[in-house]
Amino acid sequence: MAWIQLTLTTSEDYARQLGDILMANQAQAVTYRDAKDAPIFEPGPGEVQLWSQTLVTGLYPAETNLQPILTNLGKVSFLAKPLQYKTDPLEDKDWEREWMDNFKPMCFGGTLWVVPSWHEPPEPTQPHIMLDPGMAFGTGTHPTTALCLAWLTEQDLKGKTIVDFGCGSGILGIAALKLGAARCIGTDIDKQALIATKDNAVRNGVGDAFDVYLPHEAPQLEADIVIANILAGPLQELSAVILGYLKAGGPIAMSGILRRQATSVMNAYQSRIAFNSPRYIDEWTLIEGRCTQSEVG
């Protein structure tokens, strides 16, 4: 399969935002490179390093009509006007090599590893997830996923039931099971995400403990722990649904939230959640706390 790369230049302050915009406009993957060829060293666990000027590249199937996407990008306030961009063809073999070179084992919380299949686990005795970077699902490289994984390593998960709300690739639920949870319920509105989650769970030896559902088919239960890495809007709109999964005293973590959105999301949950201080990576936020009462009070 042939691909086409769409590359734009922006400042480091907007690079991740532009990457998210490209993903929202059908990009199958996004990469970041220095616009001035300055070297960058391997970042630490959960750390995101960008350059002062960054080339942000979206990957699209070669047959994609880019004109509607370029029209949308032309409306982005922080991009130059008229829109400056370039496109390059990319053969499948070139993409595969670049894809593999860009992903190395990552450690979260000092104990949990996410390892691509072409690498050996650096610490085989520590919990690890074998997960190849997918084209549309989380792998730990995004700050919100990194925040959630680090948070999970701090929880007492042994024997617990967890709900992974908006499970995507299943990485968070698989991590919880690898860290000692007994059962995970994953929900997602995307059937392809549910397939990916189940496949990844089976590949990591936790398929029997990880059940996946479309939201309207999910069982009613009060879980010990809830984690939701989606977006601020759905987190606010679905607060009653998400809180309905959490038993009194249970911890909850939510991400997919920009710094400026954190207060609004917390306000939607403050009647039942006692929040700790938010955590940040760049402009991304994780909010977490503990349920003070059950749904029925």
Rank of each mutant, 00 (worst) to 15 (best):
L6C: 08
T7E: 14
Y14E: 14
Q17R: 14
I21T: 07
N25L: 15
A27W: 04
A29H: 09
T31F: 13
T31L: 10
R33S: 15
D34V: 06
D34S: 15
P39S: 09
P39K: 11
F41M: 10
P45Y: 05
E47T: 10
V48F: 01
W51E: 12
W51N: 08
T54A: 06
T54K: 01
L66F: 06
Q67F: 09
P68N: 05
I69Q: 04
N72A: 15
S77D: 14
L79T: 03
L79Y: 07
P82Y: 06
L83F: 08
K86I: 05
T87K: 03
K93C: 06
E98S: 12
D101M: 11
P105C: 05
M106V: 11
C107T: 07
F108K: 10
G110H: 15
T111Q: 15
W113D: 13
V114E: 00
W118G: 06
E120P: 01
E123A: 12
E123V: 13
Q126H: 09
L131Y: 03
D132R: 12
M135R: 10
M135W: 07
F137Y: 13
G138K: 04
T139H: 14
C148T: 11
A150K: 11
A150S: 14
W151L: 08
L157Q: 06
L157M: 09
K158Q: 15
K160S: 07
I162D: 01
S169L: 10
I174S: 03
I174K: 04
L177A: 03
L177V: 09
K178D: 12
A181R: 02
A182L: 06
A182M: 04
R183M: 06
I185L: 14
I185C: 04
D188H: 08
D188N: 09
K191S: 15
A196Y: 00
D199Y: 01
N200A: 05
A201W: 03
V202I: 14
V202D: 15
R203G: 03
R203S: 12
G205K: 08
F210R: 00
V212W: 01
E217A: 08
A218I: 04
A218L: 09
P219V: 06
N229P: 07
A232V: 12
V241S: 15
I242S: 09
I242T: 08
L243N: 12
Y245R: 10
Y245N: 07
A248Y: 03
I252C: 12
A253I: 03
A253Y: 02
M254A: 06
G256V: 02
I257Q: 01
R259M: 11
A262T: 05
S264P: 00
M266K: 13
A268N: 07
Q270T: 12
I273S: 04
I273D: 05
A274Q: 13
R279I: 00
Y280S: 03
Y280Q: 06
E283Q: 12
T285I: 11
G289N: 05
R290W: 13
R290N: 13
C291H: 01
